[in-house]
Design a protein around this nucleic acid. Structure first.
Lengths: 250, 250
DNA sequence: TATCAAATTTGATTCAGGTCAACTAAGATA
DNA sequence: TATCTTAGTTGACCTGAATCAAATTTGATA
């Protein structure tokens, strides 16, 4: 299985420009294949919006879970942290993605969600979502797919953390971002990172110095151009090779 | 958040000895808080059983997804494998747990599920499960919790892979198994591993030699006794310290 | 029981990435 | 603009885990 698939995020973008009557829903991940009436019903549930400033918390570990969050715009990270101060970034999240799935289990958020740039989310009261999904089977099914996709994504990260070298991890990470930007209509080869080297390192199981060195190495090889947070991918093919090459067979 | 919680598997065991009329369902993870009638309805869906011999496949990567599997007895691993032959064990699964959640997303299994000992599963046609969950909200809600718990578990593994040292990983792993055996009424301090050192290593992101050395080290310190696959935990407290000690603060 | 293949342990050595430190660059604030 | 803080880069060195190799144990099968 290609790692790019494994690392895929939870967004099915095919709908983003689909015709939904409710403005606030147009760009969300849920209203796939719903008719006008169903979108209306969903819209009544999803109406409440919330802005989070850069650096602000969307939710904190331990907070009571009541709503899922659909990202309308912006960029967030989720991270779990141990008593001893260790922190593990579990994901970076962008427009159209759904946050809070981990909290359904115990009705308590198990991670922090922090905005890496000014962001806007829609709140989706989960009890209501379950309720209306009883009458809209396609919505329920789609929700199950989203949860499942998060599991698949996590397994991909486990593969990355469990068996890839530093440079391979960074290549995977960049290709994953690239693809997600492309899906949203942005350039796949020229973009700005929203997170620090340390946050990338935490996500990839590396120290920030190692991340920095891996960037430099890819730049030396002319595969990418790095200017602080601005990244250009010059040779997508060779970047893909970096990710999946035979040096990982071990 | 304590790692033991993060590593928790998807089973809520509280029901295992609850009174269900349908024999085949009694020990499954789904019929939590259902009344007799609801269990009956669910039972009609779950009826089909299947045995898998040790070493046999429950399902393979790429196979079309139609049913979830509830483990009635036995022990399985799930693993994803790359074209280049690399393999990552994504989980070990025992009685009462639900397999196949990753496949909902693309309606294709994204991993292999292989029995590590003779096992028996119930097949749960997913379309039917979705169907009846419309009429049994508590079933739907419980299913969502199970999926969410898998996500939380995966995040715990990401933390482990991303920030723990070899010995800490093994300690976490043993404590996780210990707790799961305890929940099923077995000894928490004396059990047999079903998997090889290599499979443990794959799951923990380590080479088999490193796993072996970590076992030996814990034995030298009299924290556990290792006799090939037979493990005795002599000092649960010190094993917990191994997992969570301050050496991981870095 | 004998034989063989697979699993495990242990030692010696290597190396990727971590650690520590110094320096530079980029933003934020006065 | 000057100053300060935070982020990023790079070098030197160290260490934990990988690698390679050998011996041993275990389990399966003839």
């Amino acid at each position: 299985m290609p790692l790019n698939t494994l690392l895929s995020n939870q967004l099915d973008i095919s709908h983003i420009r689909s015709s939904c009557s409710t403005c606030s829903l147009r760009e969300l991940c849920l209203p796939v294949g719903l008719n006008e009436y169903e979108v209306q019903v969903l819209g009544d549930v999803v109406s409440h919006k919330r802005k989070i400033q850069r650096g602000g918390y969307l939710h904190r570990t331990g907070a009571k879970f009541q709503t899922l969050f659909a990202i309308r715009s912006g960029f967030l990270k989720t991270c779990i942290l141990e008593e001893d101060g260790r922190q593990q970034v579990t994901g970076f999240h962008m427009t159209g993605e759904l946050l809070g799935l981990d909290a359904i289990s115990a009705e308590i958020h198990t991670c922090d969600a922090i905005a890496l740039e000014d962001s806007e989310v829609c709140e989706i009261p989960f009890a209501k979502l379950e309720d209306i999904s009883r009458t809209i089977p396609s919505l329920m099914h789609h929700f199950h797919k989203i949860m499942s996709r998060e599991i698949v994504r996590d397994h991909g990260v486990m593969l990355l953390l469990g068996s890839m070298k530093a440079e391979e991890r960074l290549a995977s990470f960049l290709l994953n971002l690239s693809r997600r930007f492309l899906m949203r209509g942005y350039s796949e080869s020229d973009f700005n990172l929203r997170m620090t080297r340390e946050e990338i390192g935490s996500y990839l199981g590396l120290k920030l110095e190692t991340v920095s060195r891996a960037f430099s190495k890819l730049q030396d090889e002319k595969i990418i151009t790095v200017d602080n947070k601005h990244i250009q991918i010059n040779d997508m093919g060779r970047l893909r090779l970096k990710m999946g090459n035979s040096s990982c067979i071990t």
